[in-house]
Amino acid sequence: MTLQELSWSIGSASGALSIFLVAFAIWRQPSKDNSDKLHEQEQEIQGLERRVGRVETQLEHVPSKDDFTALQLSLSELRGTVSMTEEIVKTVRRTTQNIDDWLRAKGS
């Protein structure tokens, strides 16, 4: 093999290798882009999982429908008790006023 043939062979091999590497890079690039996107999505999913976990933890402490119903019943009972107490206080006030008026009239 002559020097010229060897040079041509090395040049051809170098050219073929260059074409192969360019083709490989072009073929590999979408895979790398997809890998990067998948990594970003995995990180986003992990962040969302943490946020959902915090929301679930806080929801454990929120009163249930039954709790609100029991509270509503208690408030209704309390309103009734306050109304009855108000009527009793009015009666005691009238009686006290009558006694006061009678004592003032008797003292004069």
Rank of each mutant, 00 (worst) to 15 (best):
M1N: 02
M1V: 04
M1I: 02
T2C: 02
L3A: 11
L6W: 04
L6M: 07
W8T: 05
I10G: 04
I10V: 14
S12Y: 13
L17M: 02
S18F: 00
W27P: 07
W27H: 03
P30C: 08
K32S: 11
N34L: 15
N34F: 14
D36W: 00
K37M: 06
L38P: 09
L38Q: 14
E40Y: 01
E44Q: 12
E44V: 06
I45R: 04
Q46P: 00
R50T: 06
R51D: 14
G53W: 12
V55W: 06
V55L: 10
E56K: 11
Q58D: 15
E60Q: 13
H61D: 15
H61L: 11
V62I: 06
S64A: 02
K65W: 01
K65S: 08
D66E: 07
A70R: 08
L71I: 11
L71N: 09
Q72H: 11
S74P: 01
S74H: 11
L75H: 03
L75E: 00
L75D: 04
L78M: 05
R79T: 14
T81V: 11
V82S: 04
E86Y: 13
E86D: 13
I88Q: 15
K90Y: 15
R94L: 15
T96A: 13
Q97N: 07
N98G: 01
D101A: 03
W102I: 11
R104E: 02
R104H: 04
